[in-house]
């Protein structure tokens, strides 16, 4: 029985939960708890908030599962409820940020510095990861969520659009603007490794 349930599609599991199958519910929790937790953690940067959000999200979606008419949309619904709960937490904590102005980040010199040739130990250093992580945190909220969902968590554009109630072109546009800002911040950061005589063009 256990083997069978592990092979079931998400839609089939959702349908079984609607009929009161607790084992299907357990399998759904097993499959999605890390995804919900990670997304909540990346959005809030708070481990205990992420745990609370995870609990709240599953209580919400399982108790309202009868309202989901198309079972195939379970995952995107789950992500939507997760992002809403994370926004709710950030609002309460007044951490809802819109600090970085896109206009402020339009620095011409960063376009012409090629830091892609730097060695991996520099690119992947703990310090550069911290810079990138902090930079993602300072992105305007609309871009931050999309960058986290797409580039950190690896979700598809279509799923992100569905979860956030956006069109796919809107997701792509926010993603592109967010990535462009991050690229510029990284360009500024990696500049300290450049050789003024050779690295700039």
């Amino acid at each position: 029985m256990k083997d069978n349930i592990e092979k079931l599609s998400v839609a089939a599991l959702v349908s079984q939960i609607k009929h009161g199958d607790a084992e299907a519910m357990e399998e759904i929790v097993k499959r999605f708890s890390n995804k919900v937790y990670n997304l909540a953690f990346h959005l809030t940067r708070d481990a205990s908030a992420a745990e609370e959000i995870m609990q709240e999200v599953f209580l919400t979606v399982i108790s309202k599962i009868h309202t989901l008419t198309n079972e195939a949309y379970f995952a995107t619904w789950l992500y939507r409820v997760t992002t809403n709960a994370a926004y709710g937490f950030l609002r309460k904590e007044k951490k809802f940020s819109d600090q970085t102005s896109v206009e402020d980040m339009n620095n011409e010199s960063t376009v012409t510095y090629d830091w892609s040739t730097l060695p991996d130990d520099v690119l992947l250093s703990e310090e550069s990861r911290t810079v990138l992580r902090d930079s993602i945190d300072t992105l305007p909220e609309t871009m931050r969520t999309v960058v986290i969902m797409k580039d950190v968590e690896g979700l598809k554009n279509e799923d992100i659009a569905q979860a956030l109630g956006l069109t796919v072109p809107a997701v792509k546009s926010r993603l592109h603007r967010g990535r462009t800002i991050l690229r510029e911040i990284l360009s500024d950061y990696f500049r300290k490794y450049s050789d003024p005589s050779g690295e700039f063009i």
């Binding site: 953690f41 990346h42 690119l123 992947l124 580039d151």
Partner: peptide, 12 residues
């Protein structure tokens, strides 16, 4: 490379 590095941001 920015996209690649974002994928390496530590997941909890």
């Amino acid at each position: 490379l920015t996209v690649t590095l974002s994928r390496q941001v530590e997941t909890p």
